[in-house]
């Protein structure tokens, strides 16, 4: 009883800290435009849905929303499949060249993006990928962070099941997708969440690699809302809130699947 109370108390405290800035965002989103963001304004009872409704009305965020969904979705599907394949090879085939390949996976992450953005831009223009969904999806279909995550996870899973299946004469394909993949489910769910939201929120590449406004992703569209004449806070926060709500729903659904894929029999050696 005491432990339960203690647990709820502690978690509740942390929740307050994490949620407060988000409540601030929501509060400002519901303010009329143009008011100074002083304590009096924020604590006042003035509430308006005008900003949210205006954004929903103007269709200004509909297309960016769709684009973010396409890019995030495409990249996520690619990463679950490819990331898993690569991670499996790196975890299970302890070959000399795989050590080097793992190094390349990490090394790409060591390079700050600002330094490679010019050649990447040139590459996109020359290949005709510039201003297409391809520019936003193809380079990110195999995310090194994802490979590394799943590889580390697989390292922690005993190989007993695979070996047993191999003895039983299962094909490598079957072992890969029907035995190991389910066991890696928690990591793949995390991978999906991570890749989806990284792309959902990524600004730099969509901004640099596209020009047409009908390819704007949500973060780019939100940055455009800021305009030049100072930030319209209520408008921007309304947009940010609209961007968060659907992904929060997706998260709540996905996080349920972070449950063990390892059956009891798997580790009885």
């Amino acid at each position: 009883m005491v432990t339960t109370l203690f647990r709820y108390g502690l978690l509740g405290l942390v929740l307050m800290i994490t949620i407060f800035p988000m409540l601030w965002m929501l509060r400002v989103a519901l303010l009329p435009k143009g008011l100074p963001l002083t304590a009096e304004t924020l604590l006042s009872v003035t509430v308006t849905g005008a900003n949210v409704l205006a954004l929903l009305d103007s269709d200004g965020l509909v297309r960016p929303f769709f684009n973010s969904l396409v890019v995030g979705g495409g990249v996520t599907i690619g990463n679950i499949l490819f990331g898993f394949m690569c991670a499996y090879a790196l975890s299970r085939y302890r070959l000399i060249e795989n050590r080097f390949i793992l190094f390349t996976v990490l090394a790409v992450l060591f390079v700050p993006v600002h330094i490679v953005i010019i050649p990447l831009y040139l590459l996109a223009v020359e290949s005709g990928l510039y201003d297409t969904y391809g520019a936003l999806i193809l380079p990110f279909l195999v995310n090194p962070i994802g490979i590394f995550l799943v590889k580390q996870y697989l390292d922690g899973i005993p190989t007993a099941m695979e070996e047993a299946a191999r003895v039983d004469g299962a094909s490598e394909f079957r072992i890969l997708f029907q035995i190991v993949m389910p066991m890696a489910r928690p990591a793949l769910v995390v991978l999906a969440i991570q890749v989806f939201f990284t792309n959902w929120n990524s600004f730099l590449f969509p901004f640099i690699l596209t020009s047409r406004s009908d390819l704007h992703t949500l973060p780019v569209a939100l940055a455009m809302i800021q305009g030049r004449q100072g930030i319209e806070w209520p408008e921007l926060m309304a947009g940010a809130t609209l961007a968060v709500v659907p992904v929060l729903v997706v998260f709540v659904i996905l996080q349920r699947h972070i449950v063990s894929g390892i059956t009891a029999g798997a580790i009885k050696q």
Partner: peptide, 8 residues
């Protein structure tokens, strides 16, 4: 917090 764009 992690779901929210870092700029925001």
């Amino acid at each position: 917090p992690w779901l929210t764009s870092i700029v925001v």
